[in-house]
């Protein structure tokens, strides 16, 4: 497990680059951590490091956003996914193995995550702007 502390956007962008460099193209990255933890910010950092020109935003209403970059990236928000049928109808299982899946609110679908999922747990640090990222399942 890698623990990374970030106190500003610049450091989060560095973390995003390190994660992006370690990816091979079919990973599932699952975030754990509540509202306002910087999930979308980290996603933007990863996808921009992968060279996207697309606008990275939270898929709260669209459920999944698709970004073209070095790899196809599928950015999910599982906040409103409450049942297996919900999850199945997002196409989540169809996207697996076809690109990098980045999943916000993974708490809601924890039992459906593949075994080799990269888990990133985000918690608050000592002050409001500090975040602690615990990364499991990926060497960065």
């Amino acid at each position: 497990m890698t623990v990374f502390k970030s106190t500003d956007l610049n450091q989060t962008e560095q973390l995003g680059k390190r994660i992006a460099d370690a990816l091979t193209g079919t990973e599932v990255i699952a975030y754990f951590g509540g509202l306002g933890m910087g999930k979308t910010t980290l996603t933007r950092a990863i996808v921009e490091a992968l060279g996207t020109e697309d606008n990275v935003s939270s898929p709260t209403f669209s459920i999944v956003n698709e970004y073209k970059s070095k790899y196809n990236v599928y950015h999910f928000d599982m906040y409103r996914v409450e049942s297996w049928e919900d999850l199945y109808s997002t196409g989540f299982f169809d996207y697996l193995d076809t690109g990098v899946l980045i999943v916000e609110w993974s708490e809601n679908i924890e039992n459906a995550l593949p075994e080799n999922t990269v888990r990133i747990t985000i918690t608050k640090g000592e002050n409001d702007s500090e975040r602690i990222f615990e990364i499991e399942g990926l060497e960065i």
Partner: peptide, 21 residues
């Protein structure tokens, strides 16, 4: 014709995890 998985396998939340939304 979609097939439903058995109830026990359709549980999405891990037992230990608290859904804090």
């Amino acid at each position: 014709r979609y097939l439903r998985l058995p109830q026990a396998q359709r549980e999405l939340l891990a037992k230990k995890s608290l859904n804090n939304k």
